[in-house]
Every structure is written in structure tokens, then in C-alpha cells.
Amino acid sequence: MKLNYTGQEKVTADPQKVWSFILDPNKVASCLPDTQDIVIKDDRNFDAVVGVAVGPVRGKFKFAIQLVPDQANNKMAVKLRGGGLGTAIDLTASANINGQPDQTTLLDWQGEANVSGPAATVGGRVLDAQAQKLISSVFENMGKKISEGA
């Protein structure tokens, strides 16, 4: 099951600050909602356990996360592979980092989630909403934290 999402975050910081934030796995990890465990492996890879609670879904997703920067094209991708609840989730979230004349930055993001496993067909309607929430809250948190100068 392929799911696609898009969104936009306005960050009150210039692209340089944005880049320094999103190239730091510690900082990116801090944007995941309801994290229960983070293990930083190197400057591009970390593992995270994320709590999930939507309607009937109560449980944990375990992800291996990789940061894939493409500074030349002002692009950043975050790849999550993992799963939980009998389901495998491959999620790629990428953002165009567009500096604005007023020293702010627009994050135009899009997410593609590939949900596998029979539970996906049973719980697809739930997971769809959950994946969307997960992605948008990551970018929302990111926007907030960068704007706050974290």
C-alpha cells in the first residue's frame, strides 16, 4: 500500500540554520513524536522507537532512520525503514529547502509511505492517518524547533 502526503512548513530562520539542524541526527531525532528510545549510530544514521496511539492502535514502531542530504539541490531526504504491529513501513520524507527573501525558509515536503503486511489491509485506514500524522508532526516540530533557534 503506497501512501502519499505533502505539506509545507514556514521556518523563521535562514536556510543555513535549517541545514545545520537537519544534518544533526540528534536534532532530527528530537522531532519525532513520542520517542521512547533513540540510538545514534553515526552522523547520518540512527534508530528510533516511536510510540503510536491512534484510536485502536496502541503500540510501537521501530525504525532505522537515514539522513540523505543533497545540499547542491537544496534537498533533504529522511528514510525510515522498520515497522511494528505486524507491519513493515518504508517511509521516505523529502523536503525542498527554499530560502525566502525575508530570511525565512519554506520547507516544501512530501512523504511517501509504503506499508506492507496483511495488517496493512486490515488497519490500512488507521495506518494511513497515522503515517500522515507522523510525517506532518516531524516537519511541524522541525519548523518549530528551528524557528525557536534550538
Binding site: K2, N114, S116, V122
Partner: peptide, 14 residues
């Protein structure tokens, strides 16, 4: 099946 080979009929609701 979907394009990724997920079985979309794995239960008696589907």
C-alpha cells in the same frame, strides 16, 4: 494485490 505485491484480501472483511 497492489503494485508492491501486498495481498489486499487477507481477511474475511476484504
Amino acid at each position: 494485490f497492489d503494485a508492491e505485491g501486498n495481498n489486499l484480501s487477507s481477511n474475511f472483511t476484504d
